[in-house]
Structures are given as structure tokens and as C-alpha cells.
Design a protein around this nucleic acid. Structure first.
Lengths: 157, 157
DNA sequence: ATAGGTGAGTTCACATTCAGAACCAAGTCG
DNA sequence: CGACTTGGTTCTGAATGTGAACTCACCTAT
């Protein structure tokens, strides 16, 4: 993934750079990190709570949290001085992952589970929310099936 | 991740099941799979094209593609009889991952890259699209920052 | 007809990463 | 005092990933 010595620039016409999905996955792309983020969204903040909830090996959790803090996605802060205790909180950058996690969740709900999906509801009216694409210009909204042209992420072509 | 023998049901109060994010990650959750899917969205279909584009080890690619086919996300079909050649195409289930990939891409664009983001444009008007939550009932649209209550994926609490 | 090339793998030896258990440190509670 | 908690680190085998070489079926050029 790092050694592209013998590559001709075949891929340059396709997307002219490593693609930001790859960049995102450099931070999130291992078996645990997204689950850690999911827990963080749920409000989990402490080392042992992550560990217990995920059933993850301690050294791995230590390393992942460190990476996430370095990446700027979590913030490690002392929440108790005298027995020094830390908690990990979402930074704005981490919180910005919510659409990604929601999309993953909805996909799993739709295609993988028989159980009733976790619906997101509109706080003010209690009706279910949908995740969609919106064109502020035309004031049109459409779900993914209706979107056709996406430069850099071309559809089935 | 599979052996929960000694777990008490501590997590039952939090979300009463494995959570569909976990289910999704059982399929997508390793360093390569999401990149493979991204390539599939871009129109890559053949073994060697995936291999070259991703610079992934052959055995791993073989195994990943097999898993994705079993999972129902890709479809392996013979596209040439006499030298038997296969191609891997997105199934509807695979295509349904588009919001997830878009969300990942947008996150990477916004937080990780200095380069101009890949904007998605509305085909009919050419204006940039946004990914958002929409309440069909109130006919209101809001981006993730404005969403507050999500059962099962509670915000920062 | 033979030599070389390609697509799609498999097999193998080696390196990295992960898991699980034990250990440690700093503080707190009984 | 000793036990317990949180948040780690260190260690050792197991699992996984890596790259190189090999296979097999076919195709193309000479």
C-alpha cells in the first residue's frame, strides 16, 4: 500500500489521487476503529467501558485510542485529577463521522438484519428520518438510488 | 469477536443486540474490503484490475472477493466462456453501500485533504449535492449537525 | 508448433498484528 | 493493612497478511 515503485500512471485518469476514501480508511480502516467510534457516539468514554463493551484486547484498545487521538478524532482529557483518570471524547472531527456511521447502520438494518431497524426519528415530530442527497439549489431531495452522476465515485458505469 | 462465552449481559441495556453497524462491519470491516467496494463503484470489475489498482496481495484479494460474493454484495459472473474469465459486479445490496462510501468520502474531503473535495453534483442542474437527513413528514432537511435524537446511536449525550 | 503473454488463482515461507494472560502503578475503600 | 479499580505495559503463541513463485487454461505472434 505504500510502495508504488513500478506503477505506471494508469490510475491517474481514473481519479488522479489517492482518493479521500482511502485517506479516511487510513484512520478508520481496521477491524476495531469504527466500532470504537460507534461506542463513542453512544456516549462511551472510558477505557474500561470500551474494553468491556467491545471485548477488545487491552493493548489493541490502547493503541487504537492513541491513534484516534493523534488523528484528531478523539480527545483524551483528564476528568479526575487525583486518581488520574482519562476519558475519550469525540472532537468535532469525530462527530462529523455521524453520517458515515448512520449510513453503515442503515445498510446493516436494511440488508443484514431481520430485526426491526433502528429508525432515526425527527425530534420535533417523531416521524422517521431518512438519509438522502439534497440539492439546495433545486430544493430537491432524493435517496441514493436516484443519484446518477458522481465524479470520482462513478456509478456502475 | 466471535467468542463471547464469558460475557454477562452487561451490554443488553445499552442496545439490546449486536447493532447493525457491527453486522455491516462483519462484512466490510477489514483494511481492504471497503477499498474493493470503492473500486467496484468506480467500475472496476476484474480480478487483476482490483489487484493492480489496490496493490493488494493476490491471496487476500481472492479471499475478499469470495467473501463479498458469499455476503451477496458482489456477483461473480463468467463474462467470457472460452478462456474462462470472471467479473465481479455490484449487486443491489452492494450498490446500496453508496451512501456509506459517499459519507466516508465527504468526511475525508472535509477533514483530511487540502485538495478540493470531490463534489457530487445534481445531474439536472449541475449544482453541488449535499448528504443530509430528511423528514418526509415535515418536509424538512438538515445536515448531521442539526440532528439530535437517534435511538441506538445516541449522540454525545 | 513453439514461445511468450494474460487472467485468475493457489501454495509457500516469512513478517506483522492480534489475543489473552500476567504484571504494574496510583490511588481509593473498608 | 490488603483488596479493588482504572488505565495501562509486557510477554508469548495464534491468526492474518505479505510477496514471490508456481499452476492452469487459453490466446497471439512467429
Amino acid at each position: 500500500m505504500a510502495k508504488f515503485d513500478e506503477r505506471d500512471d494508469r490510475e491517474a485518469n481514473q481519479d488522479d489521487r489517492a482518493c479521500s476514501i482511502q485517506d479516511s480508511l487510513d484512520i478508520l480502516g481496521d477491524r476495531w476503529t469504527i466500532l470504537i467510534m460507534r461506542d463513542a457516539f453512544r456516549g462511551v468514554r472510558r477505557f474500561d467501558d470500551f474494553r468491556r463493551d467491545l471485548d477488545i484486547a487491552r493493548p489493541v484498545l490502547t493503541e487504537r485510542l492513541k491513534r484516534l487521538v493523534v488523528a484528531g478524532v478523539l480527545d483524551r482529557r483528564l476528568y479526575c485529577e487525583r486518581p488520574p483518570r482519562y476519558e475519550y471524547r469525540l472532537t468535532p472531527m469525530g462527530a462529523a463521522l455521524s453520517p458515515t456511521l448512520v449510513a453503515l447502520m442503515r445498510w446493516g438494518d436494511e440488508w443484514l438484519t431481520d430485526e426491526p431497524p433502528t429508525v432515526l426519528v425527527h425530534e420535533t415530530c417523531g416521524e422517521p428520518l431518512d438519509q438522502a442527497f439534497v440539492c439546495w439549489h433545486c430544493d430537491e431531495t432524493f435517496t441514493q438510488s436516484a443519484i446518477a452522476s458522481r465524479p470520482g465515485l462513478t456509478p456502475t458505469t
